[in-house]
Simulated assay, not measured.
Amino acid sequence: MISSRVPPSPLASLLKLPASTRLLFHNHVHPARQYATSSSLPNSTPQASRRAVTVANDTGRIPWTQLSTREKAARTTQQSFNLLVVLAGIIMTGGVSYVLYREVFSTDSKTAVFNRVADRVKADARCVELLGGRSGGRDVKAYGEPSWSRWARNRMIASRTETDKLGTEHLYMHFYVEGPLNSGTVNLHMTRRHGEKDFEYRFLAVDVKGHERIYLENADAGKMDKRGQGRMFGVKWW
């Protein structure tokens, strides 16, 4: 006798299985889809985050094309400021160099004039004898305005320059000399006509207290002698 019982369907048999078994069967039949991402690609690299470029932290390493509008403005401001600082430094250096040359290294600078006049005083036998010391003035010292600091004595030289109506430049200077016996004051007057390069002596004298003035240069005295020649009682006779 043939049985008429219908065998159960596979779906019904599957439904009778436990839930964990059905999940394993589902993953085996329908595997999960894999989606490509930027991190799973073999040639992709993650983009490194960077700080925003500002005037204070810009080092110039980031290319100009990668900067935003605000960052470009910050870099332009920083570079403009750096350029101004460099130009100011160049101008200041040039000014200091010019002053240093005029005051120290130039042949007509006050320091150069002081050194030449001091050497003349030390080389004059009358001055050396009055101040004391050995021949050649090796014991005679020359210095500027006295000060409580002995280091400042060689730095402060009293002098002034002025130009008259004819364009002649006048240089006035005085400083001090000191020897083993006495000390004195040196007075100097030099002139330089307009267009000329070097100064000429008009007056150079050494004054020591209690002694007669010593003249090393006195151009005005020569003029006075020429004016007095041929005159007697205020009348020119020859």
Results as ranks from 00 to 15, higher is better:
Pro18Cys: 01
Pro46Trp: 08
Arg70Ser: 14
Arg22Ala: 02
Leu67Gln: 07
Pro63Asp: 11
Leu24Thr: 12
Leu67Pro: 09
Val55Cys: 07
Arg22Met: 06
Thr69Asp: 14
Ser38His: 14
Ala36Gln: 05
Ala32Ile: 05
Ser38Thr: 12
Pro46Val: 13
Ala32Thr: 04
Ser44Leu: 02
Asn27Ile: 06
Ser68Phe: 02
Ala73Phe: 06
Thr37Tyr: 03
His30Asp: 03
Arg50Phe: 06
Ser40Asn: 13
Leu67Cys: 05
Thr21Pro: 00
Gly60Cys: 05
Ser49Arg: 10
Ala36Val: 09
Thr69Ala: 15
Asn57Cys: 08
Pro42Val: 12
Arg33Glu: 05
Ser39Gly: 02
Ile62Trp: 06
Arg61Trp: 04
Arg33Asn: 03
Ser49Met: 08
Arg70Thr: 12
Thr21Trp: 00
Asp58Met: 08
Ser39Ile: 13
Ala32Lys: 01
Leu41His: 15
Arg51Lys: 15
Val29Leu: 10
Leu17Gln: 11
Asn57Ala: 04
Val53Leu: 15
Thr45Ile: 05
Ser40Cys: 12
Ile62Arg: 15
Ser40Asp: 11
Asn57Arg: 05
Thr21Asp: 08
Tyr35Ala: 07
Ala32Gly: 02
Asn57Met: 02
Val29Met: 09
Lys16Arg: 00
Pro46Tyr: 12
Pro63Phe: 04
Ala19Lys: 04
Thr69Pro: 08
Leu24Gln: 10
Arg70Lys: 12
Gln34Gly: 05
Arg33Gln: 04
Gln34Lys: 05
Thr59Tyr: 02
Leu24Cys: 07
Asp58Gln: 09
Arg22His: 03
Asn27Ser: 11
Val29Ser: 01
Ser49Ile: 06
Thr37Cys: 05
Ile62Pro: 04
Leu41Ser: 14
Pro18Asp: 04
Gln78Cys: 02
Lys72His: 08
Asn27Cys: 09
Val29Asp: 04
Gln34Cys: 02
Thr45Asn: 00
Pro46His: 11
Pro31Lys: 01
Asn27Thr: 12
Pro46Asn: 13
Asn43Val: 05
Asn43Cys: 01
Pro42His: 15
Ala19Pro: 00
Arg75Ile: 07
Ala19Ile: 01
Val55Pro: 03
Tyr35Leu: 03
Gln78Arg: 15
